[in-house]
Simulated assay, not measured.
Amino acid sequence: MDTHSSSSNAAFPLSNKQAARIVQGRHTEVLVTSFVDKILILVSQYGKVGSVIHTAVDQQTLAPNTTTSSSDLVSTSSTFLLGAGSSVSKKTQLYNVYASHISQMIHHQNPAETRSVILSLALAVQEPDLERSPTLEEEQDQRRQDRDLFENVIELINECSVWN
């Protein structure tokens, strides 16, 4: 597995971290930038900006002066700013899962983190062929591929943590 990580903070007030590796035969890049009011996370398998989602932990569901354990789920809200697909699109549904998971992950790693996340995803997600029904084996294989992509992307994002 090809992995590269770097961080550059010299002479610039923003904290940037990036990582890249081959995931499922595709060069996959992550760039995370820490702004005063937001965290920007760009993930691409195409070398381009993809769908852009604003996501945040719902601060109203968190009582002041309480902490959540790593097993607690917190409420998140996500809004597509660019590239929203159909609500029945597999890619749209998966991107919503990514956004929710990433916001919750950041909150659990640093409960004091209150910045919202701007997430850009440009991933090679295969939409199902509506013309034919896949076999059970094909469905299971596709689920394994989706899970593998998800786990690799989350791992790359964690390598670029700017919220700890």
Rank of each mutant, 00 (worst) to 15 (best):
T92Y: 02
H54V: 05
A122C: 03
S78M: 06
T66H: 13
G83V: 00
E137T: 11
T114L: 03
A63I: 13
R21P: 08
S78H: 09
E131C: 07
E155D: 11
I22E: 14
F35G: 06
L94E: 08
G47L: 03
L94S: 04
I41A: 12
P134M: 09
K48E: 12
R147K: 15
S6E: 15
Q104V: 05
V57C: 09
A10H: 15
S44D: 01
S51K: 09
D72M: 07
V52R: 03
S161E: 12
P13V: 03
M105R: 04
E131L: 04
D129K: 00
E139A: 11
L62C: 14
V117M: 01
V117L: 05
C160Q: 01
A99N: 03
D2S: 12
Q93D: 07
E113F: 02
H101F: 06
T114N: 10
K90L: 15
L42R: 05
T61K: 11
R132Q: 06
K17T: 02
D58I: 03
L119A: 08
E159C: 09
S5R: 04
R144S: 13
I154M: 07
R147D: 10
R115H: 08
D37C: 13
E138I: 05
R143E: 10
E131M: 05
S8R: 06
D148R: 05
S161I: 08
A11G: 07
F80R: 12
V117Q: 02
G47H: 01
N164H: 13
W163I: 03
